[in-house]
Design a protein around this nucleic acid. Structure first.
Lengths: 143, 143
DNA sequence: GTGTATTTGTTCGTATGTATT
DNA sequence: TAATACATACGAACAAATACA
């Protein structure tokens, strides 16, 4: 996957990298599931900092072109850039697993099924009550 | 014990394995005392490294779902988390935070409050469906 | 029983992406 | 931009348990 960087260009380097990766996907040079070079190796080849490549990859990920895994690196995603459709099905399945895990642990502590459901309903009320999820994720503002 | 791994998922592989083992325990497919596949065999079946499976088992052990006897393998412990049988307010507060986090994320994906509560109730039903540990002769012979 | 081979979990080291400073 | 620490995943080598002739 040859990538050429023009240091004199006005376009940011991370954008140049990203554009060329998208180009390769479009032309078919990169297929779905293909691995991208690691941020370190590509950064070395291009003579830029690894954060520059990482930035490029992160943007591509946010745009839905690639997916990134811990050690395996970055891979071409199966969406041609359709960042909008962000697999809610997978997210829901993941959430279901988490809920089951919590429920099993709750039961193991001696809790009852009704107690778990009630607690879930209570937290749901809090989550959907807040007009703006300002502090996304964190739940220290319970009461 | 069929385990399915999604290499493209954002959830770490070791977590995917662990969640599905918990699921099998909750549904009764895995009973107390049942041996889990060896880390190597399962790793080979899944096409991942043995350390990934080992990590999954280690987490399950720390959470109390399984016990590991050196090189004899891993076995299902007496009902998830039974090691900490006491009703812990601290644990429940942690659970509440998790629930709130899941609910907020669910809402962010466009879900409704009723949908979240229903899903929680469904998972709770599964979790409490498994056979109650009828005071069996334990079996946690440490060492 | 004994020696060998296989299987198993463990230890050490490495590579990678991410977050923090 | 650089440096660091951390979490995830993999590979090679090791030591204990097991199986077998």
């Amino acid at each position: 996957m040859p990538v050429v960087i023009d240091q004199m260009s006005e376009e940011p380097i991370y954008r140049q990298i990203g554009s060329q990766v998208i180009e390769d996907i479009a032309t078919g040079e990169l297929s779905v599931g293909d691995p991208l070079p690691s941020v370190r190796s590509l950064a070395r080849d291009l003579g830029v900092n690894l954060h520059t490549v990482n930035k490029a990859y992160a943007v591509l990920r946010d745009e839905g072109y690639v997916i990134m895994r811990g050690r395996s690196g970055a891979f071409v995603a199966n969406t041609g850039g359709a960042s909008s459709r962000r697999f809610s099905a997978e997210q829901n399945q993941l959430m279901a697993r988490e809920l089951l895990r919590l429920a099993v642990a709750y039961r193991a502590r001696g809790g009852l099924e009704s107690g778990f459901v009630e607690e879930a309903a209570r937290q749901a009320r809090i989550a959907f009550l807040a007009g703006e999820p300002s502090g996304k994720g964190d739940g220290t503002n319970e009461r």
